[in-house]
């Protein structure tokens, strides 16, 4: 990877981000308010005997914080590649980018990097606020297993994101990947409530949703300090999904770009 190119993408997006002053303020406030909302909702949920919460210590606030914070991040990974493609299409810059001497995959990948850094910072900020002011307990965290889970999950969701970007090139609006996974993740992934409270048939379907494995492993590694070997089921599943989806997504994206160039629809939005 050419790091100097990456640095120019980050500089570009950082300069544009800073130029929107109001967005800076609203994005900071936007991270704090949901935290408080979940904190007060958690007061309604008894800490003992709740199905699906006991494995992680019974605290609903910890459950929902990890669920929503990481789901938001992973959904960004799915949506950002297609969002950046569409932004550049609409801004008129896509043609200029694609006429440069950098290949399309690199352009799409690097265009999304700043958002990953920015949202990663927001994620850390949320956990700092929750730990300092809302009683979130990070003392049991097993950093290597949490980190490995995060990296494997990122590969899975980046793959879905690349599929989504290819879909945006083909369908412009309403590409199916992020819609399907967005809906499935919130219902079946266990972001806001434990999958264990769902009917049996929905629980069976939830095994097809990658984010379920990510959130299970993240909760167990952060809240209970599970080491890597105790999370092998989830981690191997995530690895297998990533190994299959990542190359397929790149092939699909290349095919979508070629089709767009051949039909002359690449710049349309």
């Amino acid at each position: 990877m050419k790091l100097y190119k990456l640095s120019y993408f980050i500089k570009r997006d950082f300069a544009i981000f800073l130029s929107y002053k109001m967005a800076l303020i609203t994005s900071t406030l936007g991270t704090v308010f949901p935290l408080l909302t979940y904190f007060f909702i958690s007061k309604l949920v008894p800490s003992q005997g709740q199905k699906g919460l006991s494995e992680i210590g019974g605290d609903y606030f910890s459950f929902v914080l990890i669920g929503t914070a990481f789901t938001t991040y992973f959904m960004m990974a799915i949506q950002e590649f297609s969002a950046t493609t569409r932004r550049d299409q609409m801004a008129g810059c896509l043609e200029a980018l694609l006429s440069s001497q950098t290949d399309t995959k690199t352009i799409i990948f690097m265009s999304a990097i700043f958002k990953f850094i920015h949202n990663g910072t927001v994620l850390i900020f949320m956990f700092i606020v929750a730990t300092l002011f809302l009683g979130f307990d990070l003392s049991n965290i097993n950093i290597p297993s949490a980190f490995l889970t995060f990296i494997l999950s990122i590969f899975v969701f980046i793959s879905l994101g690349i599929f989504s970007a290819g879909g945006t090139i083909l369908f412009k609006r309403g590409e199916p990947f992020s819609i399907v996974f967005g809906t499935m993740s919130s219902l079946l992934g266990g972001a806001i409530f434990p999958v264990a409270i769902l009917p049996d048939y929905l629980q069976t379907i939830s095994y097809l949703v990658p984010i379920k494995y990510s959130l299970d492993a993240l909760r167990l590694s952060i809240l209970r300090g599970y080491p890597i070997e105790m999370l092998s089921n989830q981690l191997i599943t995530l690895l297998c999904i990533a190994l299959v989806l990542f190359p397929l997504s790149l092939i699909f994206f290349e095919w979508a770009v070629e089709k767009g160039k051949r039909l002359g629809t690449l710049m349309q939005y």
């Binding site: 544009i16 801004a91 008129g92």
Partner: peptide, 22 residues
Amino acid sequence: EERSFYWRLTGKKNLLFFGALD
């Protein structure tokens, strides 16, 4: 297409960015 540049960046920063792509 005059929209093919980043409007919130300076002329120089635009060229530096596209130069890096080249």
